[in-house]
Amino acid sequence: MMQKLPLLITTGEPAGIGMDVVLLLAQEGKLQDFARPIWVTADAIALQDRADKLMAAGILTTCPQWQTVEDITELTTANDSDSDSDKLNNDKVNSDASNSAFIVLSIPCPAPVVAGQIDINNSAMVAKQLEVAHQLAASNTVAAIVTGPLQKSALIDADIKLLNGTMFSGHTEFFMQQSGCDKVVMMLANEAMKVALVTTHLALKDVPAAITKENVRQTVQIVLDDMQSKFGLTHPRILVCGLNPHAGEGGHLGMEEIDIINPVLQEFIAAGADISEAMPADTLFTPRHLNECDGVIAMFHDQGLPVLKSHGFGDTVNLTLGLPYIRTSVDHGTALDLAGRGGASATSLYQALVMADEMANKALLPA
């Protein structure tokens, strides 16, 4: 049988807990749960040092074994259409790795890594991880990217820019620009529900102006496309929240549903999509409706995410829809105070890997 493509974990900020949680999963044997190779971007020297610290603290009982690949140039120069090249790269990395919990694609840090202490001299290494991840996913060398936490302020202070020359604003914007996408959609998911957002990190006073026909239209299209191509659902059922209480109460509590949201949703309904008109959020987020849908589109951050996280905070995974590949993420930060000391939980990383693996298995993409 042909080996499945790997899942790639980026450990992110080296001073944070990204390496810790990978080591914890490796010790627990959970990286072997996916019937796929697990590749990890990290500084191999810093990773060994972190493992030593966690063993000294009694957090790790043994040091997980990994294979280190020092020269990753050949991996990141694979041609999208060259399946023989992809196979060669996979075979090259996976050879002699049968006794390894995972494979480290080593990206050195310019400065020594001190757990819990940000050094902006290492921010370029964090950005390099993302470049490598994009290249490997875009060339179909890996099945999915699973991102660990980074410290945006450190990349900004180091003057790391996005592709368009603006300041670094996060994973999502990085992968969107690298992939040439005009828009992507944030979705958070757990066992209870999947919630996508029309607007994300906006002040509440700025949300109504961002609820435009084009924004709603693009969001719905991306959600429908990715539910089919990345979740394997041929005819997904999507429910959509209104912006206002009671979805505007027929215009008495706001006109956005009548003027903007429902006209766009009617376009999709007329085209055959299984999607609701705008619904009151306090009605939509009830078991009767959630049990009959595959996903929810909320108009703003705190309309949908508090409900979702109340049904599984530790199990929630962040997804980016609209990219030409699968990207999931942990739903926590760098936790600098826990790095190398213990107390970090690997649950979110495990769930992000589970989601990435399930999506890769169902996706209408190379996997």
Rank of each mutant, 00 (worst) to 15 (best):
M187H: 09
R217V: 09
V22H: 11
D331Q: 04
F102K: 00
G342A: 08
A78I: 08
T166E: 08
D315K: 02
A46K: 09
L136K: 00
I258E: 02
S139V: 07
D80Y: 15
V216Q: 02
A356S: 05
V184G: 00
L349R: 01
L319C: 05
L365Y: 14
F285M: 07
E70C: 12
P306D: 13
A363T: 06
P263L: 05
G12E: 03
D315C: 01
L163C: 04
T141R: 00
G29C: 15
M176A: 07
Q32S: 12
A56I: 13
A346W: 07
M299E: 04
R50W: 13
I260K: 06
P280D: 04
I238H: 05
T141C: 12
D337S: 08
I297T: 04
S329N: 08
I238D: 02
C293H: 11
A78M: 13
A44M: 11
G314A: 10
A15F: 12
T283R: 02
T68P: 03
D80F: 15
A46G: 11
A42N: 04
P245G: 11
L338Q: 01
D159N: 08
G242E: 06
L25G: 00
M299V: 13
D331A: 10
S153T: 15
M167L: 10
S85D: 08
K194R: 15
I160K: 02
T61I: 11
K30L: 15
E277R: 13
L202P: 03
P324V: 12
D157E: 09
I326K: 06
W66Y: 12
D20W: 00
Q67K: 11
R217W: 12
L197V: 04
M255I: 07
A210S: 08
S348T: 06
I9K: 01
N164D: 15
P6I: 01
Q266D: 10
K128L: 07
T334I: 09
A154Q: 09
V184H: 00
I269W: 14
P37W: 00
Y325M: 12
